[in-house]
């Protein structure tokens, strides 16, 4: 079975301070100085796939794992990390740097699906949302481009009796849906309690991964020029940073007891009809 997991690297927004949220004429925010991390839903998707491939080990059809990202060079480091922990291929699709792909899920999903079709993968796994654009649409659009069914908010994937059958647990309105499904399929990971964090490669694995080349594919090689990638869906007009407009009153006190008493007497009592 050929599986592709698509992931996105994002800036660790929690490390940005108020003054860092400013943008240039093209509405780009300088996030180059902040460390980048895997989008958390993608991180779950990647770890879950490694666990899934372990289950497939004993089946006759061996598993081939591809980690795929649409990014510039900064993605390479993360791809190497993924190769070190068990992905067979690290693929980066490079777009023209002049294109703003942040809010362009159509363009991204077009690129991804072209690559998937070209390589003959039968299972595509993505995280539910994330990235600067917070679009939350890429997975759905990959399914549309490929004409495949799609399951969203997946929480667990296991192998059913044969390698083209999967048991997929997902969240739907007020319930958990358990399905036995046939491939090909697009899975969109939601909150996975089983595999929230990616494993860490050993020194040896890291060393071996360094020897493996990454695959860099340009958007034009996938048959999409800048014009074809240009967003026909939406145009960004401007950005806005909310100012909570609150000024927090800090309760001082010599002891926790004193602070708790102040909090209750001054603020909570009137609000709670205890």
């Amino acid at each position: 079975m050929k599986i592709a997991v698509c992931f996105k690297i994002i800036a660790d927004y929690d490390r940005m301070s108020e003054k860092d949220w400013e943008w240039d004429d093209r509405h780009f925010i300088d996030i180059s100085f902040v460390r980048h991390i895997f989008n958390c839903f993608d991180e779950s998707a990647l770890e879950m796939t490694l666990k899934l491939s372990k289950q497939l080990e004993n089946l006759p059809d061996p598993c081939e794992l591809t980690a795929l990202t649409v990014d510039d060079e900064q993605g390479d480091l993360f791809l190497k990390h993924l190769i070190a922990i068990g992905f067979d291929h690290g693929v980066r699709i490079q777009c023209d740097g002049r294109l703003d792909m942040r809010f362009n899920s159509h363009g991204i999903s077009n690129l991804i699906s072209r690559y998937i079709r070209q390589e003959g993968q039968t299972l595509v796994i993505l995280g539910y949302q994330g990235g600067d654009g917070d679009n939350g649409q890429t997975g759905f659009l990959v399914a549309e481009h490929l004409g495949w069914p799609c399951i969203r908010e997946v929480i667990e994937v296991t192998v059913a009796e044969s390698s083209d059958l999967l048991k997929v647990k997902s969240r739907i309105d007020g319930a958990t849906l358990v399905q036995r499904v046939k491939l090909p399929m697009v899975l969109i990971m939601g909150h996975s309690l089983d595999s929230p964090y990616l494993r860490v490669p050993t020194l040896k694995q890291k060393l071996n991964a360094k020897k493996k080349p990454l695959t860099i594919v340009s958007s034009t090689e996938l048959g999409l020029d800048n014009d074809a990638l240009h967003s026909k869906d939406k145009t960004l007009m401007d950005l806005h940073r909310h100012n909570p407009g609150k000024s927090c009153v800090f309760l001082e006190g010599k002891t926790a007891q004193e602070q708790a008493k102040k909090l209750y007497d001054k603020y909570l009592k009137q609000r709670l009809s205890l």
Binding site: R102, D134, D233, K234, M237, L239, H240, R241
Partner: peptide, 20 residues
């Protein structure tokens, strides 16, 4: 149609024009 939605991990909101 103009829409406003959160971007950048709910740290900003953005105004878009939808094209079609």
């Amino acid at each position: 149609l103009e829409v406003i939605k959160p971007v950048y991990g709910n740290n900003l909101s953005a105004r878009f024009v939808l094209k079609s």
